[in-house]
């Protein structure tokens, strides 16, 4: 059986690249036996999804805008 370290690496690869049949079977068997890695797989996929929505709602202050504008006017 592959280790948890190998299994979690395969989980990351799975999202971007096609795993070989052997790797797919190894991962499925591992996740069947190992609850922690199965959890990791669910959580990793969710993190991937939310990372794509990562955003901030900040604003430049009036002072910062002034400074930048002055740079542009030079």
């Amino acid at each position: 059986m592959i280790s948890c370290k190998e299994a979690t690496l395969l989980i990351e690869k799975k999202q971007a690249a096609k795993l070989s049949l052997k790797e797919r079977l190894q991962l499925r068997f591992h996740n069947f036996m190992c609850k922690a890695c199965a959890q990791y797989g669910i959580q990793s996929a969710w993190i991937d999804k939310v990372l794509k929505n990562l955003h901030t709602q900040d604003q430049l202050t009036a002072e910062e805008k002034n400074t930048i504008q002055q740079q542009l006017n030079q």
């Binding site: 280790s3 948890c4 370290k5 190998e6 959890q39 939310v50 901030t56």
Partner: peptide, 25 residues
């Protein structure tokens, strides 16, 4: 051996916490 260290084992996450609120962001 490539097994999870005890204090690093992933715990189960509840679906209530798996939300994309501004606080979470």
């Amino acid at each position: 051996k490539g097994h999870w260290l005890k204090d690093k084992l992933p715990n189960e996450w509840t679906t209530e916490r798996m939300v994309q609120s501004e606080e979470f962001m």
